[in-house]
Design a binder for these strands. Structure first.
Lengths: 193, 193, 193, 193
DNA sequence: CTATAAGCGAGACGGTACGTCAAGTCTTTGA
DNA sequence: TCAAAGACTTGACGTACCGTCTCGCTTATAG
């Protein structure tokens, strides 16, 4: 093949970088993760890292958040099931292991970099948006909703409520978070009957 | 008076610092705000700043967030009015002028500093918590609520929904945010009748 | 009389300062002695210190070196005895307890401050110069010297040789320093017969 | 070759640093020489300087004193000539251009740093010690000395006498210093005949 | 026996430099 | 010939002292 020139080498480097980032994130958190440390921990030159990503945020997003984002679309057959499923998924991402520690930092870095913000939102938020649209559409078709639902408001509640629980209120009741969220989301929908 | 030792001088310095921080925040955002710049812009020595606050986050919190936090309790006489009022206030704080630019950075800095996190939450979130409890209590007494409401869930929605709109979804429809939020909050309450 | 107003008080403060300086000098050396620390250790305000001396060097000189300098003139009756006595005294000052630790710092500070240098030299070196002149004069009168001796060269040897032993060569043979010095000084003189 | 990675670049930087240090030393003296100023004057980053030396003293020693120390051993064929030569050399180092301004500061900084002191003494004083030993040995072999000479005392006089002239007595008769020193050194030796 | 002036402490401040960390760029080279 | 390694500049960090200033309290002695 043609483009297999440095592919193997590159893949191995990618591997080491991903491992280093995960480890450092666990050990020092997002704020304590620096390009310098990643380079040292992975035995890589800083140059190599900058050739791949333009910033720490992009790197973390690519290696940690995006990787976890390859989930299949939700379709349980009923609105109840779908909302429960998506609530669970949202709580996992926002309050679960990599996201909980990484999101605040990522959001802060987005503030100063419009390009990063756009890319990050596209990938991270866009997927959920499509899922939500599909879920509400099907529910509407099944007659479970009496009128057009506010997808955007639903989306904001889906992500914002667990985010607020974890980062603003410091509620540790993570255990029940997804059930409580599902219940709240239901109340927000214009249920038929 | 007794301890008026350096009080006048101190007050004048405080003034200059507050102005400099506001200006720099407007101009460079939270990330671009540095102690060094604050010192330069205010004609103050770094030492003087560190004598007051232990970090940029504490400084910004004290000068920007805390100052705006001296609002009177909400009591319009009806649940509808109260919810609208508190929604408006939450949107103002989360999506309004200082908060919108400052909160993501502040939340990110809280991740690495438990003490700061506690103080910030106490002041910023505690006030709202009390307001919410009072509003729901009165509504219950008036018979507007059929059962005990979930104050915590309400709180999370109150702050999280506008936060998600602004920082996760990048919805610029700030104009209607507070009305939409008030409507959503209503749906979350166990209204009587 | 007029200026007896705050004399008692002043004397007490002087006392505390002298003690603090000695203690700190012993504990931290000249380089580690700071006005700030002296103020703290003596329970004195920095202002009070600056009201007395213009710099650390002046303070140390006044409190440590000058105090020790109030010795009676040397006159043992013979050149041998006089040289031994002055050698002993020089070794005590240069290699003895306060001087050994203080002189290098003092000399360094003199480099940048001509006024300090002049005052310090006057007091510290002037006394010895007079002693030397007297000793050599008397020896000449007694016929112990065959010709006019080089007082300046004698002076340089008197101070420079022990200084070099202690600070340049790091010879710890402090015990015999003064005898060896006296012997060397003798060789430098144009002894009669 | 192996470690020729950044050698060229490094050498150029070294050059600029040496020049800046010399210039600043001339202009501001040792006390007025700061790492910050060296960085500014050389167009270099402070980091780059700290990567090379741990302190101002080490830097000055390396760039100013050590560089001048690469002199060939003394051997004029006679004790007279040798002593004159080494006296001249000592006066040049102690009272001459870089040393005169640099030594007091360097000696003061040595007080607080044993490691620096040892290295500095090794390089600066060790060379002279070997020279002295060789000179006295040869003179003894030639029969110019009647008995074993005190090399250590000679060394202390060699360095200490000019040091005292310059820094303690402030004698500006630098012109004749080396001749006067040579004469004094002679008197200290146990000359034969 | 008391008024008063010298002396003092306490803080707050603007500044300079420190030594460190990380960001991001530039130069050289080795495979 | 191009990707890495390594040296670099820049900017900010948080700290230690510097030397100055202002204020209001102590205190011992002169009258």
């Amino acid at each position: 093949m043609a483009n297999t020139r440095g592919a193997t080498r590159r893949a191995r480097t990618d591997e080491r970088l991903a491992e280093a980032v995960s480890a450092l994130l666990r050990e020092h958190g997002y704020a304590g993760l620096t390009i310098e440390r990643v380079a040292a921990a992975s035995g890589t030159a800083k140059t190599t890292i900058y050739r791949r990503w333009a910033s720490k945020a992009e790197m973390v997003f690519a290696l940690v958040v995006h990787r976890a984002d390859q989930a299949p679309p939700i379709d349980t057959g009923s609105l109840v099931g779908d909302v429960q499923a998506i609530a669970e998924r949202a709580v996992a991402v926002v309050a679960g292991d990599p996201g909980r520690d990484v999101l605040p930092g990522l959001l802060a870095d987005m503030a100063g970099d419009a390009g990063l913000a756009a890319r990050l939102r596209d990938a991270f938020v866009g997927a959920a948006r499509d899922d939500i649209a599909a879920i509400l559409d099907r529910a509407h078709d099944r007659g479970e909703l009496s009128e057009e639902a506010d997808a955007d408001g639903f989306h904001a509640a889906l992500l914002g409520i667990p985010y607020a629980h974890v980062h603003l209120l410091a509620n540790d009741a993570t255990g029940h978070l997804s059930e409580r969220l599902a219940e709240q989301l239901f109340r927000l929908l214009p249920l038929a009957g």
